[in-house]
């Protein structure tokens, strides 16, 4: 094997300016169109409902909705409400925020397969009111907790979080 003996340096030497560096923070901002399917989805969230699109060829009830079926590669041909309850497909208990800083209290995030959608289809969202995080389990039934109507903005966060349904 042949390798080049590159020059390793310490992060602290960079931070202390011992290694010449130049710094830059981009000031770009973005505003994304939500598109045809997701704009309708967000409008429905504002009404406290979750909507899917359907494909008559493969029979899927697809959430998040799209205007085409990527498998059949044809237009989706209908809208259908699904329930705001579902099952935890998988989850994580995170001690990390988005920027990798540490959280004192962990947050739980899960993929939730929504009732009424095709098997295995769902969304990613937060879980709260679970008690001890060690009690969160795959297969647990959950229900959406909605923000009050006056606080909804037509965003995925109009669902504040999902909480376990105790039976």
């Amino acid at each position: 094997m042949r390798y080049y003996q590159s020059e390793a340096v310490e992060t602290k030497d960079i931070k202390e300016g011992k290694i010449p560096t130049e710094k830059f923070r981009p000031k770009a901002k973005f505003a994304w169109s939500a598109g045809i399917a997701i704009s309708r989805f967000l409008e429905e969230l504002k009404n406290g409902k979750i909507i899917a699109t359907t494909c008559s060829k493969c029979g899927r009830i697809m959430v998040p909705p799209r205007i085409y079926c990527e498998k059949c590669f044809k237009p989706a041909d209908g809208w259908k409400y699904v329930k705001d309850t579902g099952v935890i497909n998988t989850f994580s208990v995170s001690f990390l925020a988005a920027d990798a800083s540490r959280l004192k209290e962990p947050i739980v995030v899960a993929i939730i397969n929504l009732d009424g959608a095709s098997e295995g289809m769902g969304i990613v969202h937060r879980i709260e009111e679970y008690g001890d995080w060690r009690e969160v389990k795959i297969g647990m039934k959950v229900k959406a907790v909605w923000k009050p109507p006056e606080e909804r903005t037509g965003a995925i966060t109009d669902i504040a979080y999902f909480k376990p349904i105790r039976e």
């Binding site: 939500a34 994580s92 995170s94 925020a97 995030v109 899960a110 990613v124 965003a155 995925i156 966060t157």
Partner: peptide, 16 residues
């Protein structure tokens, strides 16, 4: 639209 507002961290996809 659907994922970043949840506060996603890269490690989450691996954890899930």
């Amino acid at each position: 639209i659907l994922e970043r507002p949840i506060g996603m961290n890269l490690i989450w996809i691996f954890a899930l």
